[in-house]
């Protein structure tokens, strides 16, 4: 079961990847609405066992320390986004958001292009697809892929920050469309979920971006 919780102020998606048999869950991309996410965890009597972020932008890592401390669970992040994560408070200030988040040292730094992670009984595959940020990853679990800010049902998320590289992003998106089963359920960092093939065929901004 996958539960989406929309975090404000950037409408970023936090996900709870849950196993119904024992209520264990992995928190993916806890943003700045950690209380809202935690309310859902409490309401569903879930037992968080890990936190993974698809990338290091503050709207996807803002709640990490809250869950890390409350549930004593490890945090996974790709090493290429560590510096970005540690700059979260700078970017919050730049975005005129009056928050100061606690930065923790991730227990696990993912490295390289791909990695298999077995967390409890969750078998995950992590793939680094740079472009949006250097350490942006897709998290695959069964037929579901969490695509962060790389692939969306509608539109693209170009922010013009120096960490973004449009040419590399384009290459990554093309690779993703070829690498994953097009029947995969895609859970993006913003907006609604969709089947990957639907995105490939109907996301006109994405089609234009990779065609030019």
């Amino acid at each position: 079961m996958i539960i989406r919780i929309v975090n404000e102020p950037f409408s970023s998606n936090a996900y709870l990847l849950c196993r119904e048999s024992d209520s264990k869950c992995i928190i993916i991309d806890p943003g700045l609405d950690e209380v809202l996410v935690d309310q859902k965890i409490i309401e569903l009597k879930l037992k968080p066992i890990a936190i993974i972020s698809t990338h290091g932008h503050f709207d996807h890592v803002g709640g990490v320390s809250f869950f890390h401390d409350k549930y004593s669970i490890p945090f996974y992040l790709h090493i290429e986004d560590l510096k970005l994560y540690k700059s979260s408070n700078f970017y919050l200030k730049l975005s005129k958001i009056n928050r100061f988040i606690k930065i923790i040292e991730p227990e696990f730094l993912m490295i390289g292009k791909s990695q298999k992670l077995n967390i409890d009984k969750f078998s995950l595959e992590i793939y680094n697809y740079p472009g949006h940020t250097k350490g942006s990853c897709i998290i695959k679990h069964e037929n579901n892929i969490f695509t962060g800010d790389i692939v969306f049902k509608k539109g693209l998320y170009l922010n013009k920050l120096p960490q973004e590289n449009a040419a590399v992003l384009k290459k990554s998106i093309i690779e993703i469309m070829n690498a994953f089963d097009l029947a995969s359920n895609c859970y993006p960092g913003h907006g609604n979920e969709a089947v990957l093939n639907e995105i490939k065929l109907t996301n006109q901004d994405l089609i234009n971006f990779i065609s030019n």
Binding site: K83, S87, N89, F90, K93, L94, I103, L161, P162
Partner: peptide
Amino acid sequence: LVSIIVDLEGVFSSDYGIDISLTDDRAM
């Protein structure tokens, strides 16, 4: 500002072999 910071960190790292972070919590 972000461009300036990224450029500066890049110059110090590539030209002088000094890795600095200008935007972490120590700076903030």
